[in-house]
Design a protein around this nucleic acid. Structure first.
Lengths: 196, 196
DNA sequence: ATGCTTTCTTAACATACATCAATGTAGCGC
DNA sequence: GCGCTACATTGATGTATGTTAAGAAAGCAT
């Protein structure tokens, strides 16, 4: 059942099947229905999620009621609220399921506890945190410098399978443009004979 | 000499003076002159920096030659290239000194080595990495949703002392707008009797 | 299949911000 | 202090993207 998560871990750090047995006891798998709300802004979250199948998202809603997608979490991705996980603070963002999703639930102190038994879990944590930072830096750079078309092309490269799975207005929301603009960008690309 | 760094560490995690002595041996302090280049895009970096005095920045340069500031690092902030530090990959960004800067040089493997002697250095690392992620998520949200004026007001709140220290065009570059636009935003705010 | 809802497209129009260019001002080395 | 360079302001103009509104298409439940 947790095979996928084990494979992911073993791909990142040297952890044996036996070690995985030792630390996987507390882990649970939770299923979220399509459109199910997982975390509201203002709530304090005590869990992170590792997506095995399906798709989660975190997002904000601004003063005009517009939604802004901070992150997509498809298969093999993490999603958690950093405010709650480490600092017991209220979440800045909402989390919900775009598709029916199976996710491994990672309790707040899980990594630290697991690292007491299997030290390389620290390395694992460093790796994913650093990867997350790298990823976000690139996104910030994109938001600072790229046009709507460039952002969209970059998105397609980055999330090739999401492009087909999520509604366009969500992609637009992730890119920081309106759905109408994205529609125009796609039309232009089609005229240029661009193909996914 | 490393007093400031020690105070910072002790503020984040429970680490005694004796423990600090054990792990601070390898640390060096380096001084960068104003405008000194520290890391070029494409280079592989093996060090992170903790700024004791002065101001560093990381930035990109786009295809039109425009500069985009990814991060400012004033006193008590960290700056490092995540590509090099953890993955031995080429940096996506440039790093240089905006002011004459004294920084603690943190070698690539320092945290892991130090944690072997003082385990809570892992917690320390988790804390700063998570803080960095929180910070960047808020910035992404800002870039997705806020107008030029909102971004500037937010910047002032976040970096009150930088507002006076760095040239306006750099602030504009951090906010993702042109210096001309920032100048107009400031003019409008002045008309509304806004005061820092 | 039918109808209802959500999503996507398109067009006309609006606007925030960028660009270009000129002038003013402040910082800094000599 | 002089002069050079970097920085900031302002105005005229341009443009990418937003807004509004309508209709078309696609998805989904009954």
């Amino acid at each position: 059942m947790l095979e996928q998560f084990k494979a992911y871990l073993q791909n990142k750090v040297a952890i044996t099947d036996e070690q995985f047995e030792l630390i996987s006891g507390k882990l649970k798998i939770k299923t979220f229905e399509k459109n199910e709300m997982i975390l509201m802004k203002g709530e304090v979250s005590a869990h992170g999620y590792f997506v095995m199948s399906g798709l989660l998202r975190s997002y904000s809603i601004d003063s005009k009621g517009k939604t802004h997608i901070i992150q997509f979490a498809p298969e093999q991705w993490w999603l958690s609220d950093r405010n709650g996980m480490l600092f017991n603070e209220a979440s800045d963002f909402f989390i919900d399921a775009i598709e029916r999703t199976e996710a491994v639930v990672i309790p707040k102190d899980y990594i630290n506890d697991a690292a007491k038994i299997v030290p390389c879990m620290h390395d694992f944590n460093h790796t994913i945190l650093n990867n997350s930072i790298r990823f976000m830096q690139k996104r910030i750079n994109m938001l600072l410098s790229a046009t709507a078309e460039e952002r969209y092309l970059n998105f397609i490269k980055l999330y090739p399978n999401l492009t087909l799975r999520v509604p366009q207005w969500m992609i637009a929301s992730y890119l920081g443009i309106t759905p109408e603009s994205l529609s125009r960008v796609r039309k232009d690309l089609a005229h240029k004979h661009f193909k996914i």
